[in-house]
Simulated scan of single mutants.
Amino acid sequence: MDRTTTAELKTEILITGLGGQGIVLAGQVLGTAACLTDHRQSTLTQSYGPEARGGACSAQVIISDKPIHYPYVRNPDILVCMSQMGYEKYRHLLADNGILIIDQDMVRSADSAGGGVFPIPATRIAEELGRKMMANIVMLGFVTSITGAVSLKGMLTSVADSVPKGTQDANIAAFNKGYDFGQALLKARQKKAAAIKGAGA
Score class of each variant (00 low, 15 high):
76 P>Y: 06
129 L>K: 07
130 G>I: 08
95 A>Y: 02
80 V>P: 00
85 M>L: 15
108 R>D: 05
63 I>Y: 10
94 L>G: 03
113 A>T: 10
62 I>Y: 00
136 N>H: 04
101 I>L: 11
91 R>H: 13
135 A>N: 05
141 G>N: 07
64 S>C: 14
129 L>S: 07
79 L>N: 06
126 A>Y: 03
104 Q>D: 13
110 A>D: 09
72 Y>D: 04
134 M>I: 09
92 H>T: 14
116 G>L: 01
119 P>L: 10
65 D>W: 00
87 Y>W: 10
114 G>I: 02
87 Y>L: 06
93 L>E: 11
116 G>E: 14
112 S>R: 13
67 P>V: 07
63 I>V: 14
71 P>Y: 04
110 A>Q: 08
102 I>A: 03
70 Y>M: 12
126 A>K: 03
121 P>L: 09
84 Q>L: 06
122 A>Y: 02
63 I>F: 05
65 D>L: 09
80 V>R: 03
141 G>C: 08
109 S>Q: 13
77 D>L: 03
84 Q>V: 08
97 N>R: 10
127 E>M: 15
115 G>Y: 02
106 M>A: 14
105 D>F: 01
93 L>I: 06
103 D>C: 07
80 V>M: 02
117 V>M: 05
130 G>A: 07
66 K>T: 12
71 P>I: 09
125 I>P: 01
103 D>Q: 07
106 M>F: 10
